[in-house]
């Protein structure tokens, strides 16, 4: 019993790292443009399929797909930005519908190119189990988690210290004032989308090495990322990480003690509970009421 709980907690934390990367990409684009990118999960999915492509064609480790994924997802994210930027009227509503449409296009494009089969890494190295006392993890899970932590650190440093990072924060907190300071918001928005794309690339490859993907995964990831931002708010990296781990734990415990069919339900219920009873998020995010 205790081992089961420990194992569930451990797996939950490990997947939480990747969830955090997905959610941070969504939050970054939201911060810069005030729009929810409903195609963000599909960008992650695209990266996962690049890993599958490289692994299945060359036999190389999925992580060798990083350059390819960065290019493909980066371009996709940039095109997405250019399209969203064209919307002038009813921006909030129309950008939701537009990114939703792009999500449909990406999901079906992947379906067309790679079929609907479930894919995961075939690398024996990544799938090897590593034990820590009573709990186990695949090597792939551990690498993905460490990678996620490192990327969060890099992102934190970038937002805090670099000129671009500061400008991104300035634009998210006050667009008009940032413009007065000579910051070109369009350029900052572009950079935010590119960084979001980069995070999605790493998240997608990591996901492929530790879990399974199929075309429908993209949409589910968008929803998860959104749930995490509701739990945590879009304000801070540690907050998003905690929200992501909480979602990962909830899912893992549900799978262990109920059934895997209820995994998504658990996330949704958690989401609704927080939305209704803690409208400011678990960590006091900004207001989201109309």
């Amino acid at each position: 019993m205790t081992e089961l709980v420990l194992q569930a907690l451990f797996s939950g934390v490990l997947i939480g790292g990747v969830y955090a990367l997905v959610a941070l990409g969504l939050a970054l684009a939201f911060g810069a443009m005030r729009i929810i990118n409903l195609a963000h999960g599909e960008l992650v999915l695209l990266a996962a399929y690049m890993a599958y492509l490289v692994e299945s064609r060359t036999g190389l480790d999925p992580y060798f797909a990083i350059p390819l994924a960065l290019i493909v997802v980066g371009v996709a994210s940039w095109i997405l930005f250019l399209l969203v930027d064209r919307i002038k009227d009813h921006r909030e509503l129309n950008s939701l519908i537009l990114t939703f449409a792009i999500g449909i296009i990406l999901t079906n494009a992947i379906l067309l190119l790679f079929a609907s089969d479930v894919r995961t890494t075939s690398s024996a190295f990544l799938q090897d189990a590593v034990s820590f006392g009573d709990v186990y993890a695949m090597r792939g899970e551990l690498i993905a988690f460490v990678l996620a932590l490192v990327l969060m650190g890099v992102l934190w440093w970038w937002l805090k210290s670099s000129w671009y990072g500061r400008a991104v924060r300035a634009v998210s907190s006050n667009r008009g004032a940032a413009q007065l300071m000579g910051i070109n918001p369009t350029r900052i928005e572009t950079v935010s989308f590119l960084v979001a794309g980069a995070l999605a690339s790493f998240a997608g490859i990591a996901l492929y090495t530790m879990s399974v993907v199929q075309p429908a995964t993209g949409h589910a990831l968008t929803v998860k990322a959104f749930i995490i931002t509701v739990l945590a708010g879009v304000g801070s990296i540690p907050g998003v990480f905690l929200g992501a781990v909480l979602l990962g734990l909830t899912e893992a415990l549900t799978v262990t003690f109920a059934s895997s069919a209820l995994q998504e339900l658990a996330g949704m219920v958690l989401f609704l509970l927080v939305l209704f009873f803690m409208p400011n998020g678990l960590f006091g995010a900004r207001a989201r009421r109309g």
Partner: peptide, 24 residues
Amino acid sequence: LPALRLSGPYFALAILAYAQIFRI
């Protein structure tokens, strides 16, 4: 109904969550 007091994207996603819950 509690979702009604949420603004745009939050309402949209809350209602999506409901649809999933009903399917399950």
